[in-house]
Amino acid sequence: MSTSHKLIRQSYEARTGGSGKQADAMTPAMTAFERSPDGGKGLARDTRVRWALEEVGQPYEVRLVSFPAMKEPAHLALHPFGQIPTYEEGNLAIFETGAIVLHIAEQHAGLLPKDADARARAITWMFAALSTVEPPILDLSTARIVEGDKPWARERLPLVMDRIRVRLGQLSARLGDADWLDGAFSAGDLLMVSVLLRLRMSGVLGEYPNLAAYVDRGEARPAYRRAFAAQLAINAPAS
């Protein structure tokens, strides 16, 4: 395994001053960027896993992985597509952010309702965030960063923005004046807020005041603040 792997322990109890669960041999481990492309602004998908673990009060370890190490056999054995995050707990090793967050939510109280119908709706919102709302938002990044120098880029960008606005308009109408998507905060909100955060720099989120306020509520949650701070600390410039 590459020497660019580093292991750190994230202790819920140490950061909160509470009586959180003690880390032991079964403490789950996740992977995160050694240097995040966003500089630790919370947009990398490993932040979503951190946030979920913080919400349920589960201690965890983080294995920091460099870009070259992501393509090495050791990491490909965990994630066949050479990406992050991955998640290991005992003999279980899984990948894909949505699957990891769902696993955490199913194993610990706090991210899924106890009522079966409400639980199903929360899981539906998880899928909606990743499968319906996020794809056009990711397309915006592609249009600006990957395809920005193409001769047809200026013509394509308005089409991408139109698709984003369609989704935001639909989501805004459904959310209305509610705090969260379906009653109390759930894993569905965690993923939806994480997805919408990618739009902050574009300014388009401000066109939908209730969605902007929704994202603000997500960012204000103590668990999100801890996850964000942990990710930012890793990416802080060396003194």
Rank of each mutant, 00 (worst) to 15 (best):
M1A: 14
T3F: 01
S4R: 11
H5P: 00
K6S: 13
R9I: 13
E13L: 07
G17V: 14
K21S: 00
A23Y: 01
A25V: 10
M26N: 10
R35D: 09
L43N: 04
A44D: 09
A44P: 02
A44S: 13
R45I: 03
D46G: 02
R50W: 05
E55G: 11
V56Y: 03
Y60D: 04
V65G: 13
M70Q: 14
K71S: 12
H75L: 09
Q83M: 14
P85L: 03
P85R: 06
P85V: 10
E88S: 03
E89W: 10
G90F: 10
G90L: 09
I100R: 13
V101P: 13
L112H: 00
A120T: 09
W125M: 02
W125G: 02
M126N: 00
F127R: 09
A128M: 03
L130P: 10
S131W: 06
V133C: 09
E134M: 11
S141A: 15
T142E: 02
A143Q: 15
G148H: 01
D149S: 14
D149V: 04
W152V: 12
A153R: 10
R154I: 07
E155A: 15
R156L: 15
V160G: 09
R163G: 02
R165N: 01
L168S: 07
G169W: 03
Q170N: 11
Q170F: 07
A173Y: 00
R174C: 07
R174L: 05
G176T: 12
W180N: 00
D182G: 12
S186V: 05
S186N: 08
S186R: 06
L190H: 01
L190K: 04
L191E: 13
M192S: 01
M192N: 03
L196H: 08
R198Y: 00
L199P: 02
L205E: 05
E207T: 04
L211R: 10
V215A: 11
V215Q: 07
D216Y: 05
R217Y: 05
R217T: 07
G218H: 13
G218V: 12
R221L: 08
A223D: 11
A227R: 04
F228Q: 11
F228G: 01
L232S: 13
P237D: 06
